[in-house]
Design a protein around this nucleic acid. Structure first.
Length: 216
DNA sequence: GACCAGGCACATC
DNA sequence: GATGTGCATGGT
């Protein structure tokens, strides 16, 4: 029955918004960089940082690994938190080169659960960033939870207010088929819904979920 | 000018 | 274990 509700919500969102074509990135590595840069940050600003990295021909594992951290911080400045994010990117690259020679294909045979644990061990990569990388860059069937997901699930009584990341993720993953395509589209649709309607102060207006149970 | 954005680590109680 | 705070740019 939760599974019915989750599928119903998906259908409503897809019907209203259509396919979202996520992740907006040309290569898996670009997706990884974007996942770190978009932490608590508007995607438009991340796009500017990505453009800067492309112009500087720095958007490959090797180049980014070698790039001076001060220089890197300057290039990603539009994405905000640029000092801390430069360090986070470097932390990821250090891990990537130490363990996998900076080659994405070397990640292919690592089991998802193990890879997730390893990503989480990198300082600056938390649950959402790790799962975004796993799903959108590495094509693993994990459900990405973000602030919008938590807010929407709570407001519509799908889960307790105050449920943590893992509980919310578990609700989706155990009540939906484990499909990369479905998880990809669902998370993207939730973000679209969140941007248009489910702000911290709700703007329900023409929300496609109008009519479903909702907290006041 | 206030509010918000596709978080995370760390300090403090 | 829960709660608070710093990190920072840019659009609405």
């Amino acid at each position: 029955m939760l599974s019915e509700q989750l599928k119903g919500i998906y259908d409503l969102l897809f019907k209203r918004f259509g396919p979202q074509d996520w992740w907006p990135g040309d290569t898996p590595f670009e997706v990884i960089v974007g996942a770190i840069l978009t932490q608590n940050t508007n995607w438009a600003n991340v796009g500017k940082a990505i453009t800067n990295l492309k112009k500087a021909k720095a958007l490959t594992p090797d180049k980014l690994h070698l790039l001076d951290i001060k220089k890197l911080a300057e290039l990603i400045r539009p994405a905000g938190y640029f000092n801390i994010k430069a360090k986070r990117l470097k932390n990821f690259l250090d891990w990537f080169f130490e363990n996998y020679s900076g080659e994405l294909k070397n990640l292919e045979n690592v089991p998802t659960a193990e890879l997730r644990q390893q990503l989480l061990s990198v300082k600056g990569i938390g649950p959402e960033t790790a799962d975004s990388i796993l799903l959108y860059a590495l094509n693993r069937p994990v459900f990405v939870v973000d602030a919008y997901t938590a807010r929407i699930c709570s407001r519509h009584h799908l889960i307790d207010e105050g449920a943590d990341y893992h509980q919310i993720q578990e609700m989706f993953e155990s009540n939906l088929p484990s499909s990369i395509q479905l998880f990809n589209e669902y998370h993207a649709l939730i973000v679209h819904l969140g941007k248009d309607f489910c702000k911290p102060t709700p703007k329900c207006g023409e929300c496609p979920l109008n009519g479903l149970p909702h907290r006041v």
